[in-house]
């Protein structure tokens, strides 16, 4: 399978990349790891006339602890996320999630920014970013703006990115020390997108849940932040009745498609099961 013809651009600064994207308009696509875009181009489902490769832009690989946030450059690969001791120490759920994305080869090339910016509901990082309360720095010719991951996704492949804008950095508030976390993903095989997946971050104090945040992957046209389900857990001991109520609240906001991964009802139920498992793991991991 051979993609259609295109012109290749390799800018070395963010400014020149966004200027190019604005000037070339809808015929141009930014290229990060390429593992979502290139398969589409090979099957001619996508035929951009220009690719603006972001690989040569030095500044997009930043990985830093700044104040109470970690800042991750958009071109940071999943492989780099997995091997970062900074991230594994401060936000270990990032590693747990990156490890269930695709396969080793794809994780060397696939980037966290591409995963978040593409708007594919099957991507794993977006629901995690919503769970963590992350925000995205979007950069255009006019400068930067900050959009919360919880406001970024408008529909399948529809995001808050304006024409000519790219996602340049992700800012994640560092969860409190001793927090519990879990990312649980049901997939048919290595490399598959989720049938359903859930991200959970909680804090506990003296056996009581003091905060809870839940994200759900691939059970709607967008990633879902299950705010109500999280609220139900707070103040409880995570007893069975409360967990059942939270799972029901999470299942209620799903709206999955029936597809080769299963009928909609099944995928909704699996979202509930993934939430239960992720929550249980988070509970065990949380230091009380």
């Amino acid at each position: 399978m051979i993609p259609g013809t295109f012109d290749y651009h390799r800018p070395t600064t963010v400014e020149s990349a966004v200027a190019l994207l604005l000037q070339l308009g809808e015929d141009a696509r930014p290229l990060a790891g390429g593992h979502s875009l290139i398969p589409l181009m090979k099957t001619r489902l996508s035929a951009p006339e220009h690719l603006v490769d972001l690989a040569a832009i030095e500044g997009l690989r930043r990985l830093e602890h700044v104040g109470d946030h970690v800042v991750i450059g958009a071109m940071t690969t999943q492989h780099a996320v997995i091997n970062s001791t900074l991230l594994t120490d401060l936000v270990p759920i990032l590693r747990e999630t990156a490890l269930v994305i695709a396969d080793p080869q794809i994780r060397y090339k696939g980037t966290i920014g591409g995963n978040c910016a593409n708007g594919d509901p099957g991507n794993d990082m977006p629901a995690l970013m919503q769970c963590l309360g992350a925000s995205y720095q979007l950069t255009g010719t006019g400068g930067h703006r900050e959009v919360s991951a919880r406001d970024f996704y408008l529909g399948a492949y529809e995001t808050a990115l304006a024409p000519g804008e790219i996602l340049t950095e992700i800012r994640i508030p560092v969860p409190p020390a001793g927090h519990g976390y879990g990312y649980e993903k049901l997939k048919r095989k290595v490399g598959d997108y989720a049938t359903a997946a859930a991200a959970v971050v909680i804090t506990m104090a003296a056996g009581t849940c003091t905060s809870a945040s839940i994200g759900l992957t691939n059970v709607s046209e967008t990633p879902l932040w299950a705010a109500e389900a999280g609220r139900i857990l707070v103040g409880s001991t995570l007893d069975a009745a409360t967990v059942n109520a939270a799972v029901a609240a999470a299942e209620a906001i799903t709206n999955p498609a029936s597809d080769m991964r299963g009928p909609a009802e099944y995928r909704t139920k699996m979202a509930g099961i993934m939430l239960r498992r992720a929550l249980e793991r988070a509970r065990v991991r949380a230091t009380v």
Binding site: R10, G34, I38, K42, D53, I106, K109
Partner: peptide, 26 residues
Amino acid sequence: DTGHCGACTVDMDEMSVKSCMTFAVQ
């Protein structure tokens, strides 16, 4: 030819990459 099987794997700058999902210009 779809990025799944890994038969096209080569080593590129200390990464294992699927060369059927990478452009030569990259």
